[in-house]
Design a protein around this nucleic acid. Structure first.
Lengths: 215, 215
DNA sequence: TCTCGCTTGTGAAAGGTAGCACAAGAAGAT
DNA sequence: ATCTTCTTGTGCTACCTTTCACAAGCGAGA
C-alpha cells in the first residue's frame, strides 16, 4: 500500500461508500461494479481499478458483498474510529454545521465551537457551547480534536487555521474563500459555494454559446 | 474557443478571479503569473497555460493588469450578467445559504425559496419569502431562474432537481448526499461536507501510517 | 464433471493534464 | 541605440489517469 493514491480516487471511494451505506440499509447483499458505477457517476472499470489499489474484495461472476465492501472502504478511509471536530467561527455557516445531524451518524463528533464575538460566547448552539478563542489550545488538547472546520470571515481564516494546527489539528476543512497556506503535513480541503456557482455559470454560458454556433 | 476546457481549468480560473478581486480592491495595478500562482496554490506555468486557452492578456516583462484580467475572467466565466437563483429546501443549509450575503456581491441573486413544510411556507428568511412547491413552475418562469440549489433532504433531492430542470433551470448545485441523474444539457455540481471530511480522514490516516513505517 | 454465463482483477493502450525550458517581447538604464 | 532584466506565451516532454480488453475465477445447472 506504498503507492500514492490520487485525490480523485479517494473522492470516488467516498462516493462508493456513501452508496454502499444506502444499499446496506436497504439490506441488499451483493452489488456489481457496474451498478456501483451507475449510481456514483463513473464507469465499472474505474470502480474496479480504484478498489484494486487496496486489494481484491469481490467474487468473480458475483460482484461485491455490500456489507463487506462497506467495511473495507471504511477501513481504507480511516473511518473505523470516531473523529473529533471543532468549528471555528459560529456565523451562519458555523451554526448550520453545528446543527447538521449527519456528522454524528457518519463518525464525526463536533465537540467544540469558537468565536470572537462577545455576544456569541457562552451560547449553546445545537448542544455545543461557544467558547472564546483563548480557550482553543486547552480544549483542542483536552478533547483530542484532530479536525478544524474554518467558518470564520475571510480575514480571520488564516490565523484561525494556523492556531488550530499549532494546537494539534491535523486536518482543515476551509469554508472561507481564501487559499490557506499550510505546512505540508496538514491536510486541507476547501469548500466555496461561490466557486461552484461560477463553475456552473461557465458551463451554462458555454452550452449556450455552443448552441448559438450550431444554429 | 471551440476547444473543450477541462473542469480543473475552470476551477482554477475561478480561483484566479477570486484573488484578482481582492487585489483589485487593494488597488494593485499589476500581477505576475508567479504571484497569482502562489496565492492560489498552483504554478506560474499553469496560470499562463490556463489563460492561454482564451487569448493573451499579459504584457511580457510586466505581468497582467489586475483590473483588465479580472474583467477578462469575468467574461470568460460568464459573470458579466447577473444570475437568478432559487433555493429548494429551507432547512439548516437552505437558511444559511439564503443569509449568505456574498452572493449578491458576486452576481448571484437568490430570488426564491421553496419548501414542503407547512410551518415554513410564508415565512420570510433573509428577505426571501418561502413558497410552497406548487408555485415552483410559475416562479421559475416569472423570475427567469436559471440556477437551482438543492438543499432538501436526500429522499426529495432527485425529484426537486427534475422539477427545477423541467421548470427551466439549466444548472444545479446539489447539497444532498446523492448523485443526481440529469440529462446531459444540465450542469451539476455537488457539495457534500461529509465527503470532504472523509477525504481528510484518509489523508490524516495515511500520513500517520507513513510515519509509522519510517520509525 | 463439464459447460455456460457472468463479473472481477489487471496489463497495456489511449487520452489528458501539468511542468519544463526557451524564444519573443517589453520597459528602463546606460 | 544598445544592453539588461524581467515575464509572458507556447511547443515539447513527462507523468498521471482513465479506458479497453481479456484471462482468470466463481457458481449454477445439466
Amino acid at each position: 500500500m506504498a503507492r500514492k493514491i490520487s485525490d480523485s480516487t479517494v473522492r470516488r471511494l467516498s462516493r462508493y461508500l456513501r452508496r454502499l451505506r444506502t444499499l446496506d440499509r436497504q439490506e441488499l447483499k451483493v452489488v456489481s461494479s457496474r451498478e456501483l458505477a451507475e449510481s456514483t457517476g463513473t464507469t465499472a472499470a474505474q470502480v474496479r481499478k480504484d478498489l484494486s489499489h487496496f486489494g481484491s474484495f469481490g467474487k468473480r461472476g458475483q460482484g461485491y458483498g455490500v456489507t463487506d465492501l462497506r467495511v473495507q472502504l471504511e477501513e481504507i478511509l480511516g473511518l473505523t474510529r470516531r473523529w473529533r471536530v471543532a468549528v471555528l467561527g459560529v456565523g451562519r455557516i458555523g451554526s448550520a454545521l453545528l446543527g447538521y445531524g449527519f456528522f454524528t451518524q457518519r463518525g464525526f463528533d463536533v465537540v467544540a465551537a469558537f468565536d470572537t464575538d462577545r455576544s456569541m460566547i457562552g451560547r449553546d448552539v445545537a448542544g455545543v457551547r461557544v467558547q472564546p478563542l483563548k480557550e482553543l489550545e486547552t480544549t483542542f488538547e483536552e478533547q483530542e480534536i484532530s479536525i478544524a472546520i474554518i467558518a470564520t470571515p475571510v480575514e480571520a481564516a488564516q490565523k484561525a487555521a494556523d492556531r488550530a494546527v499549532r494546537a494539534g489539528a491535523r486536518a482543515i476543512l476551509n469554508f472561507a474563500p481564501i487559499k490557506l497556506r499550510m505546512s505540508p503535513g496538514v491536510a486541507v480541503r476547501e469548500m466555496d459555494v461561490t466557486l461552484e456557482l461560477e463553475g456552473l455559470c461557465y458551463l451554462v454560458t458555454e452550452a449556450g454559446a455552443a448552441t448559438d454556433v450550431k444554429e
